[in-house]
């Protein structure tokens, strides 16, 4: 196990370097960020040259990348063009998004697995059909539609919740955005759990568990769930990474100043250091989430051994 973890961590290095280089190249190839900063005004060529020199933009791309990475490892993600440090932006954005993600994941776990289990146990009954149709609806409607509809009805029309999240959000403010954010994954988790439950209910070992005279609670809780959750846990694990970075739409709708919001601002304003910095951290989050999922897999299923 230890060797496997070390090998995986070492494998992360080339993946990390490769992805960040591609992102770096793409962002800086998009245009001239200095010209962008001046907008419609014609800048003074001397100022431009000085800024280009300060930002290392006059050097070849590879050199720029190496210098950038060097800075990152000393904790310096550079400055956004408005002079704010990128690390400062991160310090505000990541906790907010993390909070949102955690609420969303909890919803996936509690509701997704719960509904999946219930509909799997009652296969072909009313509840099962309702859940199947409901998840289909959620899967087929784009997030922004669900988001705006939820915001309009729950917040604007019926006044149950605040339409946008305050600057320093609390957990209960996050519930509606988390629902919107988790919606799609929630539907997938429900379906995945249901399929897995239905499949395992026919398994021989479940018949054995019943033949042992175990109470139904135990048959389901220990024997059925334990086996059925293996694929679900994998899905939820990878989803942590996806939710951390993929909240652009939801954060936009509810005015949450998280990672998605900052990324969007960075892209719209050609704020290259912000974009590269945030994406670099997200790459790390993805890689770690994947590693944890793989390790968790071995914990849940003893037939899988890493050497």
């Amino acid at each position: 196990m230890g060797r496997y973890v070390i090998r995986r961590l070492l494998q992360m290095i080339p993946v990390f370097l490769g992805t960040t280089f591609i992102i770096f190249a793409m962002v800086y190839a998009l245009g001239d960020p200095v010209a962008q900063m001046f907008g419609d005004r014609t800048p003074d060529p001397a100022t431009v040259a000085r800024m280009r020199h300060d930002l290392n933009l006059d050097k070849p791309l590879v050199t720029q990348y190496v210098l950038y990475m060097g800075n990152i490892f000393t904790g310096d993600f550079g400055e956004a063009f408005n002079g704010q440090k990128v690390t400062e932006l991160m310090g505000e954005a990541f906790p907010t998004t993390l909070q949102l993600t955690l609420v969303a994941i909890s919803l996936e776990i509690v509701l997704g697995i719960g509904l999946g289990l219930l509909s799997g146990l009652r296969r072909g009954k009313i509840l099962d059909n309702v859940v199947l149709i409901g998840t289909l609806v959620v899967i087929s409607i784009p997030v922004f539609v669900i988001g705006y509809l939820a915001q309009y009805f729950l917040a604007v029309k019926w006044n149950w919740v605040e339409p946008s999240v305050s600057a320093d959000p609390t957990i209960d403010e996050m519930i509606l955005p988390a629902f919107v954010l988790a919606g799609l994954s929630l539907a997938y988790v429900t379906r995945l759990t249901r399929t897995s439950i239905v499949e395992n209910m026919r398994a021989d070992y479940l018949r054995t568990a019943v033949a042992k005279g175990l109470p139904r609670r135990r048959v389901i809780g220990v024997h059925l769930l334990r086996n059925s959750l293996i694929p679900v846990v994998t899905f939820i694990g990878t989803d942590v990474g996806a939710l951390m970075g993929g909240a652009i739409v939801t954060e936009g709708i509810f005015n949450i100043h998280g990672v998605g919001y900052q990324l969007l601002q960075g892209v719209v304003r050609r704020n290259s250091p912000t974009v590269v910095g945030f994406v670099t951290v997200l790459v790390l989050v993805f890689l770690l989430a994947n590693l944890i999922v793989d390790l968790l897999y071995a914990v849940l299923d003893p037939r899988i051994r890493y050497a």
Binding site: A203, Y205, V222, R226, R303
Partner: peptide, 10 residues
């Protein structure tokens, strides 16, 4: 079939 009749993860 004891392999399939025993729970693989316990």
């Amino acid at each position: 079939d004891a392999l399939s009749s025993l729970n693989p993860v316990l």
